[in-house]
Amino acid sequence: MKNFLLLASFCFFLHQGSILAQDWAQLGVFREVNKKISMTSSTERVVFFGNSITIGWLHTMPSFFEDRPFINRGIGGQTTPQMLVRFRQDVLDLHPKVVIILAGTNDIAGNTGPMTLDDILGNLKSMSELAKANNIEVILCSVLPASDYPWRPGLEPDKKIPALNAMIKEYTEQASLHFLDYYTAMVNDINGMDKDLAYDGVHPTKAGYEIMAPLALEAIAKAIKTAN
């Protein structure tokens, strides 16, 4: 029985790996639904672009996205190189007024291989430059706190995330972009998040998103004002 379970697990991960090998950036996730969105530019359309924290917002607090011109394009587990590959399809081609990018924690976790902080920032810069070249206002978010990753312990995100956030903030100031600081509002005394804000120390609960929501709305309002 034990050997059977091991074989079944191996086959599952082999299958998943095969899928990712054929669509590494997961362009297929939103390809069809994107076709149903009007390609005309919206005066206030905003794309939320990110990983599981972004798509989790839609699932955990759907009311935030109701009756607003917000489009959620988060994919669980993604890293910045994957996001950069799908940036044209899932952001540029939707012609938003603003893109709000929240990414980097999965890079630190090594989800698609080793990444330096400079690598992560470089991908965020590339996405930002593509957006600006297409007259889209950019909001770069601080990475949310994490004292450790339950699925890959020992990678010191409690040290790396604050360092990356400082780099992101500095870049937004240099490039005249908007910086959205979730980190300061959610961090605890061990550079993580309490369980009431993140059930596993990484992914926000409804209470966590309720802290993020007004901060996002304020940043979006400023970005739209800048664009106009």
Rank of each mutant, 00 (worst) to 15 (best):
G76W: 00
H95R: 15
L27Y: 07
D67W: 09
H59Y: 13
V202N: 01
Y149W: 09
P204Y: 01
F64C: 14
I220R: 00
M1C: 07
A219E: 04
G201T: 04
K132T: 13
K36Y: 07
P96Y: 02
L121V: 04
K160N: 08
E210D: 15
E32N: 12
P145S: 09
F13K: 05
G113I: 05
D119C: 08
G17F: 02
G50I: 00
Q22C: 14
I224G: 04
G113H: 07
D67M: 12
T40S: 15
F87E: 00
A221Y: 09
S147P: 03
V85W: 05
S9A: 13
K195P: 05
I190W: 12
K169G: 01
S176F: 11
L124M: 09
A198F: 05
G74T: 00
L102G: 06
I108K: 00
S63I: 11
H95C: 12
L215G: 03
Y149D: 05
T226I: 11
Y149R: 07
D158L: 04
I100Y: 08
N72F: 07
D119A: 11
L130E: 11
A131H: 04
D93N: 14
I161K: 01
G50A: 02
N188L: 03
L27R: 09
F179Y: 14
I190D: 14
Y209C: 11
S41C: 14
T54V: 10
L121P: 01
A213S: 15
F70S: 03
Y182I: 02
I75N: 08
M186V: 03
I108S: 00
M127H: 01
S142V: 04
G56N: 06
L58C: 10
I211F: 13
L140H: 03
A219P: 04
F13C: 09
V143K: 03
V98Y: 02
E156M: 10
I211V: 15
T226V: 13
G28W: 12
E137C: 11
N123D: 12
T43Q: 06
K125Y: 02
Y183N: 04
K132E: 15
M39K: 14
N228Q: 15
K125H: 03
G50D: 01
S176R: 14
Y209P: 10
L94Y: 02
R88N: 15
A223W: 02
W57D: 04
G76F: 02
A221N: 14
A133V: 09
L84P: 06
F13S: 09
T116R: 03
T43F: 02
F179R: 01
L7P: 03
N3S: 11
P150R: 08
F70V: 09
M1T: 06
W151S: 10
P81A: 14
Q78C: 11
S38R: 10
Y199S: 14
M39A: 13
T60V: 14
S128C: 08
P96V: 05
D196K: 13
N135D: 15
